[in-house]
Design a protein around this nucleic acid. Structure first.
Lengths: 206, 206, 206, 206
DNA sequence: AATGAATGAGTATTCATTCAT
DNA sequence: CATGAATGAATACTCATTCAT
């Protein structure tokens, strides 16, 4: 008789739920998100949700991880695409990657991290270990390579990989809060990269 | 000896309550803060709170304003302290001011702005009008003065006052999330300022 | 210097407060009335109110009494205005009095009695003793006089003074609930009185 | 033996809750009734109540409607039982119906209507449309039929169907307030009906 | 006497979580 | 496995009453 409509397989459920939860958390924050709403978005009963995620908090953490991990992988993959000089890599692949972030889901993650971080230290630790620390190390390595190849000069700048990431973070935040106040984030990233490269090449403190 | 459990101090109450609320919101965010907890911190009954602040939301807004306004006034006052060249002002008074922010209450405000902004658009508007927009304009004016006096050259940089503020915002956020992971925010601000001044003086793109 | 504005004397205070309370109770019922509101209407501080009326409930009772007592006195006085036959009295002074009630404060009292009676049995007792019971007795006496004078015949009707009061109560209630749905209460009272008088004169059941 | 403290009975709950609410509202009025109390009476958790009734007010309205509607249906059904002359119908089925009201739940409804009407205009409108207006129309129709059949004469009385309903309303109110002071409501209804019929048959104004 | 700031018990409502079906 | 009815702890807000001034 009634053909069962496309029967989703169990294996997909957790991801579907996590995706729905991502949306919900993005819109309403952690406290503002209702478990029932997530379930409805995912087209699943509350009871079933609790089969996969034992608490709302666990769901939250799972969501964060599921968004973050692929991004990290992407960056990692990007690092391999070498053959380029440090400068070329910074101006090319890296800049492109950086520019893609402010509009992506990662922005939401940043918001959640800021808003809920204090209450979820393990999440912060996870984020640090898998994203920030790794990203900063990547930048450091890049600079180091540049020094070794003679492109860059060792200097104060050399110790501060944060300067490369800064405009991305700033753009993400700015857009998050002032969605309507236009800011040309791409240009910001370009300009900062230029300034940095100039400084790296020629420290210039007499 | 026993403190009278009943004291009339109409004048002081609102500020005391706001201060207690600031702490509480800082620790737990908006939704996570219990009105009862604020009252207890302020050493006051819940009822009294509602005498001065009609709702939790109003209390929240009042708190934000009370922290933000003095800071803005401080910056404004600083701008007057002229006689200095643009460069000198950037390296001196401004840098000092900037360095004071990551450790101040303003950091908490930023967190709240990010976390709760979407639900309090009027607060975001207030913040934009009174803080961000004004701050950006101040930076623009400063640069313009530098150009007029011949210190700086007009260039792409000249249009992006955000670059000056960026390290402050970054530092605030960074500390907010990764309080334990040390970041020398002072140095970051110094370096960025140096990079910028160099760029402003000599645009350097052939 | 500043002449003290018309200084109200202490003696008037309780009445002024009661009057203000009457208004408030009429508008919002017992539970819906805020003590603070009554105080404001009376132009008096809450503290002072509590000097005269120890609780909200006591205030309520005082109000009821203060409205009811004068009405009762009025009816009583009316009864004296004799010289008239029973029929003449019913059609004249009584009808007039009855017609005045649906628009008077007594209507509000009825509402309060119905709404709050169950929670204030002593008030109900007071109302019964001073208003209803007395009113019914007055009607009974009137009929009895009519019988003695030969105007009326003893019958079933003779035992039911309620029939005389009925249209008044009905009108009060009707107006209370359906203020907008017009009902000619005067005519209702007239017609009922006519029917009754006819019945009293000529019982007419074979 | 121990009743499971957790039982799924989706079908029955709303009615059970409404019944419990009816009792509670009857005893304490709207404001005086605690949602928690209703839940306890219904043997249900507060949360479940809110699953079926979104607010206390909605519960209130639902209760009113649930009591009123069946009564109206009963009256309507009664009107069909024709074959009887108008007089016979008034003295028979109608009188019987009327006598049943003062002891029924409808009495409580009247109380609530009077007490809470001002704050729930839509409820008053509902009550007017479904009960009062319809009831009055039924009485008018009945009289009209009597005129057409020659039983009754057109007169002032003919325009005032309220006179038929009056003793019912009066009885309800009287019992509501003075539960203990005996009033033979049946007799009151009988007498008034007799008076009316006499008047309808023979207007008698010379 | 007079004020109104201060108290705190009381109440409607929400929502993460459980569990009978 | 799946469901969603059922639970109850948690929380913002109100208001009669008190009492320092």
């Amino acid at each position: 008789m009634a053909q069962p409509r496309y029967q989703r397989r169990k294996e997909d459920r957790p991801d579907e739920i996590a995706a729905a939860a991502m949306e919900a958390f993005a819109e309403h924050g952690y406290a503002g998100t209702k478990v029932a709403d997530v379930a409805k978005r995912a087209g699943v009963s509350k009871g079933l949700m609790y089969l996969y995620f034992k608490t709302k908090e666990e769901l939250f953490k799972a969501v964060i991880r599921s968004v973050v991990i692929p991004r990290v992988a992407a960056l990692e993959a990007l690092m391999e695409s070498s053959g380029l000089s440090s400068e070329a890599w910074l101006c090319g692949p890296f800049t492109e990657f950086a520019k893609s972030l402010p509009g992506s889901h990662i922005a939401v993650i940043v918001r959640l991290m800021i808003a809920e971080g204090p209450k979820h230290p393990d999440l912060v630790a996870f984020y640090w270990d898998n994203v920030v620390s790794r990203g900063l190390r990547a930048m450091s390595n890049l600079i180091e390579r540049g020094i070794e190849s003679g492109e860059f000069q060792r200097s104060r700048l050399t110790e501060q990989p944060h300067l490369i990431i800064m405009p991305v973070v700033f753009s993400v935040i700015f857009r998050l809060i002032f969605a309507d106040k236009s800011l040309d984030t791409d240009q910001l990233i370009d300009t900062q990269t230029d300034l940095l490269i100039r400084g790296l090449k020629d420290p210039a403190d007499a």
